[in-house]
Amino acid sequence: MRTLHRHQVELRAAIVESAFAPFASAIVPARLSPREQLDIYRHHYVLTLTEALRVTFPVILQLVGEACFRAMAARFIERHPPVAPVLFEYGDRFADFVDDRSELSGGLPYLADVARLEWAINLAYSADDAETIGLAELVALSGDSSSGALLGLHPSVQLVGSPYPIDLIWRANQPGADPAATVNLDRGGARIVVYRDAELDAAWRSLTLGEDAFFRMLNRGATLDEAHQAAAVHGSFELGSTLSWSLNAGLFVKLPATANPQRSFPP
């Protein structure tokens, strides 16, 4: 192995795995020991990635507290080091990690789903830009055959579901929320659409069962008519009012004629 390659493999091991010994012999002796010098790098790596997770998952931090969050982050960073230099994209596996390690989450069964909501909010904030359409464009697009029209969802749009009231939990843990307020877990689950609003803030809205089915169908590439039929199974669904708020919120984009809008969301 050539020198540069060996250096990079060994310094990576020192930083990611705290395996300091192999690289120590490559270092010129100095006032600080090799271990102390390498610790500066290791410390910076863990500290800055923890900070990135803290920015993306503020409600998880609020729910578990500083010490627990730091321990969770350290384990996560060890298990899932970043693979790309765009730090706002780091943390896509954090929710699954929380799910698999319930001993870390202190018996909060909803924690992983709250992390999923926060990750969706993070993605919505930084998702690619795309031109949204309003009601007039939808009408023009559909022409005579609105039932067969394909609607594209904006890249920021995501659907999050949970058997727990994660919408209420999220709200109760925002800055300025009443610290004495409690959330009744018996209220049942939440179905949420997350998106980016006209002010470019990440936003979300709770969905009825019908609306949830409607957006999940559209997301799978169904036509407006097919999505409507699936949603109508749930009695309360009203196509007009759902289209009205969702077009206003900028959830839809025009699809190119040949587009295949298949995307996969977690079930």
């Binding site: 990576r12 990611v16 790098y41 790596y45 080091p81 970043p82 693979v83 790309a84 230099p85």
Partner: peptide, 8 residues
């Protein structure tokens, strides 16, 4: 290195 981004 090795597909890991070391953020430094």
């Amino acid at each position: 290195a090795g597909g890991v981004y070391l953020n430094d």
